[in-house]
Design a protein around this nucleic acid. Structure first.
Length: 235
DNA sequence: ATATGCACCTGTGTGC
DNA sequence: TGCACACAGGTGCATA
């Protein structure tokens, strides 16, 4: 990490840790804050004080009086942390759409109600439309709602929109309850793997039989992302 | 307005 | 066993 970043946070007290969309926020007592994104392989891990530095570690947070250190590591180095002012914090967070778990089905479904020709999957992945939904959960929500990820927003019925939003909410809540989805190397701050993986119906199941109807799950590329769906259950 | 391709990186799995 | 290649949870930008 840069010397500038270290200097900007050294000695400050973290008052609150929160999240908006996929952005983590560490709020300091002077109004400044660290904002960060883990991207795909980033993680925070509490480690003992005798912890030995690992290859992909990018910063080790040492707290005065703390029993443990906090390490930020990131294999692919796509993630970032930066220290921002009060205004910088607003600016970093203002572009995101509503939080799916803090917003009504009606309001969220309305955001999909547009004559737009873009696909439902593109809309779900667009953080300005709805915050926080990633590739796995977009595929899973479409499957459970019986909607093909390739469907255009303009072709969706009000019922389709409501269904997919309801599924987004259910899936995200369930995944949070189960500590997320570990597909490769995701772990939480205690090193625990996510338990949602076993509930995946389509993601990572290309060519395997649909759990509902046995049709082989199809995998295509959509919005530049691996996209999984059942050609029978999803229309 | 939207889609596509690529870029940022490293690691892993697969096929030859 | 080694090598080449495709692909991976995300996003931003340049181009079509």
């Amino acid at each position: 990490m840069g010397k500038k970043f270290i200097e900007s946070i050294l000695g400050k007290r973290i008052e609150e840790v929160s999240r908006r969309a996929k952005i983590l926020v560490f709020q300091f007592d002077d109004g400044t804050a660290i904002v960060g994104h883990l991207k795909m392989t980033g993680k925070f891990l509490f480690v003992p004080k005798n912890y030995v530095r690992q290859k992909h570690d990018r910063i080790l947070f040492v707290f005065s009086g703390g029993a443990e250190h906090l390490v930020w590591s990131d294999i692919r180095t796509f993630g970032y942390l930066k220290c921002v002012s009060v205004e910088g914090l607003d600016e970093a967070l203002c572009k995101y759409g509503p939080e799916p778990l803090e917003t009504s089905v009606e309001l969220l479904a309305d955001r999909l109600c547009t004559p737009s020709s873009r696909t439902i999957k593109a809309a779900l992945l667009n953080q300005e439309c709805i915050a926080g939904v990633g590739n796995i959960y977009a595929d899973e929500a479409c499957h459970r709602a019986g909607i093909r990820p390739t469907r255009r927003l303009s072709s969706l019925t009000a019922k389709n929109r409501t269904e997919v939003i309801k599924e987004v909410k259910k899936i995200l809540q369930k995944s949070i309850d189960l500590n997320g989805t570990t597909s490769n190397d995701y772990v939480d701050t205690n090193g625990t793997q996510g338990g949602f993986s076993v509930l995946l119906k389509v993601y990572g199941r290309a060519n395997l039989p649909c759990l509902k109807c046995k049709t082989p799950i199809k995998k295509i590329v959509l919005v530049g992302r691996g996209t999984h769906y059942c050609p029978t259950c999803q229309r």
